[in-house]
Structures are given as C-alpha cells and as structure tokens.
C-alpha cells in the first residue's frame, strides 16, 4: 500500500509540471524576451540530455559508447533518416562491444 502512495505521489509531481505550462501559456500573452528564451530550450535541453549521459551509456565500456556516438553524429550529419541513424549506432556499438570482448 505504501508503494501505491509513492506511485500516486510521483504521478502527480510528474504530471503537473508537464501540464501546467500548456494551461498557463495558452491563455497568457508571452513577452518577446521570454519567447526568445523558450526558443532556445530545445537545443539547450538536447545538449544537456546528450552530455555527459551518452559517454556512460554503456556501463564500463565508454569506448564502445564513443563509437556509437561518433556513428550517430556522422550519420545524422549526412542527413541519415532518424531510424537509420539509431539502428547504425546500435549496430556499431554492438560490433565494438564484440571486439572489446564484452
């Protein structure tokens, strides 16, 4: 029962921050300076989501992770499809894990 309380509490504190901006900002007029700030949230968040997490994505094998990251960068740089980029990155990581004797 204790666990259910935790789950319900976690649901609320996760859902409210997700939902609140939609309720607030769709009614208010957003000032220009805030709009500019909001426009830079995507690249700021993506940069922070990728680093440093990506380097430790494969526990104990940072080199294999680096291979996967490099392939993903190269593939997306040359306009690879998103699915193809993800697929090739996983394959490259798999191959390097084999080579590194996982």
């Amino acid at each position: 029962m204790n666990n259910i309380n935790i789950i319900i509490g976690m649901m609320l504190v996760t859902f409210i921050p997700r939902c609140l901006p939609f309720l607030a900002f769709s009614r208010l007029n957003i000032p220009r300076s805030l709009k500019k700030f909001l426009r830079y949230i995507p690249p700021a968040a993506l940069g922070a989501l990728i680093f440093p997490g990506a380097i430790t994505a494969i526990p104990n094998y940072p080199l294999a992770a680096m291979v996967g990251i490099t392939i993903a960068i190269v593939c997306s740089w040359f306009r690879g499809e998103i699915s193809l980029t993800v697929f090739l990155s996983v394959i490259a990581t798999l191959v390097s894990l084999c080579l590194f004797g996982y």
């Binding site: 990728i50 990506a54 994505a57 294999a64 996967g68 993903a72």
Partner: peptide, 12 residues
Amino acid sequence: ASMGIALYALFI
C-alpha cells in the same frame, strides 16, 4: 547493453 546507446543516438 548496445541498445543503451539508442536514445542518445536519437537525441543526436
């Protein structure tokens, strides 16, 4: 283990 890279590859 290899699929651990998938979501990062997606972000990239």
